[in-house]
C-alpha cells in the first residue's frame, strides 16, 4: 500500500515537473502564447455565438428551454477544454512518436510510456474553454433561476472530470491504431467532428445516433447526460450514475489497446 502511495506521489511530482518544463517553453515565447490564447478564445466565442444567435429565434428544442441548451453547451466546454489541454500529443502520436521514432526515447525512460506521451506537452490556452464554459453555465443557470446546491457543484466537478476522461480515452484509443498502421493524419478527424453532436440534447437525434453516442462512442456521457441530471430532466436521471462507470470503462479499453500496441511495437519496432 505504501508503495502505491509512493508511486502516486512520484507521478504527481513528475506531472508537476513536466508541466513546469512545458510552461518554461511557453514563457520563453510570450507573444506566441498570447496570440494562441486569443485565437483559441475567439474560436470558442464564435462557435458559441452561432448557437446563441440561432436560438434568438428558437425558444425550445426537444422540450429543452433555450437557456438549458446554452447550459448544456457551456457545460460541454468544460470537459472538452480539459481534454484539449492534454490531447495535443495524441494527434501527433502516429507521426512524431511512431514514424519519426520519438517513441524509442520514451521507452528508455523509467516512467510509464502512457504518462510520458500524455504529459510531454500541453495546450494550456485551451484552459480558456473551461473558464468560458463555466461562465456560460453560470449565466444560463441564472437565466433559468437555477438554485445551486452543494451537491450540484460537486456533481458538476465530477461530471466534468469524467467527461474529460471519456474524451481522452476515446482519442487515446484511436491513437493506439498508430501502433499497427502507418498514417500521418490518423483516424481522429471523423471522431473529432462527432464531439459537436454531444453539445445538443440527444433527444433531437434518431435512435441510432443516440445509441452510437451513448454506447459506442460515449460522448453523450461526457456532456448530455450530466447536464440533464444537473438540470433535473427526470427521463434521463437513470444515466447519471453510469457516468463514472463509462469513464472508467472507456479508459480501460484505451489502456488495454495501448498495452497491446506496446507489445506490437516491441516486436516490430515500427
Amino acid at each position: 500500500m505504501g508503495r502505491i502511495f509512493r508511486q502516486i506521489e512520484r507521478h504527481v511530482g513528475l506531472f508537476g515537473a513536466y508541466f513546469a518544463q512545458y510552461a518554461k517553453v511557453r514563457v520563453a515565447y510570450r507573444g506566441d502564447f498570447f496570440i494562441t490564447l486569443g485565437t483559441s478564445f475567439a474560436a470558442t466565442l464564435f462557435s458559441f455565438g452561432f448557437v446563441y444567435f440561432l436560438f434568438q429565434r428558437i425558444s425550445y428544442l426537444a422540450a429543452w428551454d433555450k437557456y438549458e441548451v446554452f447550459f448544456l453547451y457551456g457545460f460541454s466546454l468544460i470537459p472538452f477544454g480539459l481534454f484539449n489541454v492534454l490531447s495535443l500529443n495524441l494527434y501527433e502520436f502516429g507521426s512524431t512518436y511512431i514514424m519519426e521514432g520519438k517513441f524509442d526515447r520514451v521507452l528508455l525512460r523509467p516512467i510509464s510510456s502512457l504518462f510520458q506521451v500524455l504529459f510531454e506537452t500541453f495546450r494550456i490556452e485551451s484552459f480558456q474553454e473551461v473558464v468560458t464554459g463555466l461562465v456560460v453555465v453560470l449565466w444560463s443557470a441564472r437565466m433559468l433561476s437555477y438554485r445551486w446546491h452543494a451537491l450540484d457543484v460537486l456533481l458538476l466537478a465530477v461530471f466534468a472530470l469524467c467527461g474529460a476522461v471519456i474524451y481522452i480515452s476515446v482519442f487515446l484509443f484511436l491513437s493506439t491504431f498508430s501502433f499497427w498502421f502507418e498514417d500521418r493524419i490518423g483516424v481522429h478527424p471523423p471522431f473529432w467532428n462527432l464531439i459537436a453532436f454531444g453539445r445538443y440534447p440527444l433527444s433531437i437525434y434518431s435512435g441510432y445516433i443516440q445509441f452510437l453516442l451513448s454506447w459506442i462512442i460515449p460522448f453523450g456521457f461526457a456532456t448530455f447526460y450530466p447536464s440533464a441530471r444537473l438540470l433535473g430532466h427526470a427521463e434521463f436521471r437513470a444515466y447519471a450514475p453510469l457516468v463514472p462507470l463509462i469513464a472508467v470503462a472507456t479508459f480501460a479499453v484505451a489502456a488495454t489497446s495501448w498495452r497491446l500496441g506496446l507489445r506490437r511495437y516491441s516486436s516490430t519496432g515500427s
Partner: peptide, 17 residues
C-alpha cells in the same frame, strides 16, 4: 528538450531518474 535551456533538461532528468 529542444526549446529550453540545457540546464532545465538536466533538472527534469534528475527528477525522472
Amino acid at each position: 528538450w529542444w526549446d529550453i535551456a540545457v540546464i532545465e533538461s538536466f533538472k527534469l532528468l534528475r527528477r525522472i531518474y
